[in-house]
Design a protein around this nucleic acid. Structure first.
Lengths: 146, 146
DNA sequence: GCTTTAATGTTCGTATACTAACAATTTAAA
DNA sequence: TTTAAATTGTTAGTATACGAACATTAAAGC
């Protein structure tokens, strides 16, 4: 029962074995791979938002936030920046004066195929250290703790 | 070969199946669980830094950054905030006038056992949806893409 | 020794990410 | 119908996270 640390429990606490810590490291590596492909200088978050709009056609700002798991403050910043780059168009919802309808701009539509292609590449590179079955496993397990 | 989207590749691109996106969701959930345990209002990042200092006794700011995978700008902010809360002590390195030696404060040392305990709890809750073997698998796979 | 290179820490700028508070609008309930 | 509750979007504040540039100091190369 000798223990050099101040811990008294059975399992020693090792930072490098904690999910939270490893998740951060994995996210960092993915982010780094993403940035190295400079998708018109899009960030992973902006990319997610664009893809979601492409999927559903149009939606309100808060709704887009829910579809991409971003809170209202975060999605606002993302939409603002996408708008500033002319990647989305904004117009008031005629049926609800609180809402703003967000759609892909023509510029964004032209880039869609490229976005999807590079998106695939980024995912492949991120998962490259794993075998095909390991990749499936990882996605399955990650989805479970979401 | 009918495809309603503008994608032409074999594999359709689904945002919800991309590692990057799922990693973000998993990190968000972990972060949320972490915050709900308000470790003296520590953030996951501040927690990591504290634990690392506890592991090695003392170190410079940049070195701590490398040990916790934070770049120089990030670790500076983290150390500043830890110092502001009296969780670390800072003193100039007598052997290198560029460096500042960082050590745990007495206040932090007193809280160490609690930090470890809650750290375990947070990890357990985050991994709760998985079986014991799945937990091992996930950590193994995540470590591989780090 | 002297110059080049490297390392440490700082600051600025930008982008998530979340809390909390707020006004305007819509919906639901009384 | 009129009040209460919920939704939408905005703003302010704080905390990562990273790139880039900078001055100070230390280490290497000659």
């Amino acid at each position: 029962m000798s223990d050099t640390s101040s811990q008294t429990s059975q399992k020693p606490y090792k930072l490098d074995e904690q999910v939270g810590y490893i998740l951060r490291l994995a996210s960092q590596r993915h982010s780094s791979i993403f940035q190295s492909h400079t998708l018109s200088k899009l960030t992973p978050t902006q990319y997610s938002a664009l893809i979601r709009i492409a999927e559903i056609g149009h939606c309100s700002q808060n709704h887009l936030g829910r579809l991409t798991s971003m809170d209202v403050a975060t999605i606002k910043g993302v939409v603002d920046r996408l708008h500033k780059r002319d990647l989305v168009t904004l117009k008031p919802d005629p049926n609800d004066r609180r809402r703003t309808l967000i759609t892909l701009s023509e510029l964004a539509k032209k880039q869609l195929d490229d976005l999807y292609k590079v998106g695939h590449t980024i995912t492949e590179k991120t998962l490259a250290p794993l075998s095909a079955s390991e990749q499936q496993q990882l996605l399955k397990l990650l989805a479970k703790i979401t």
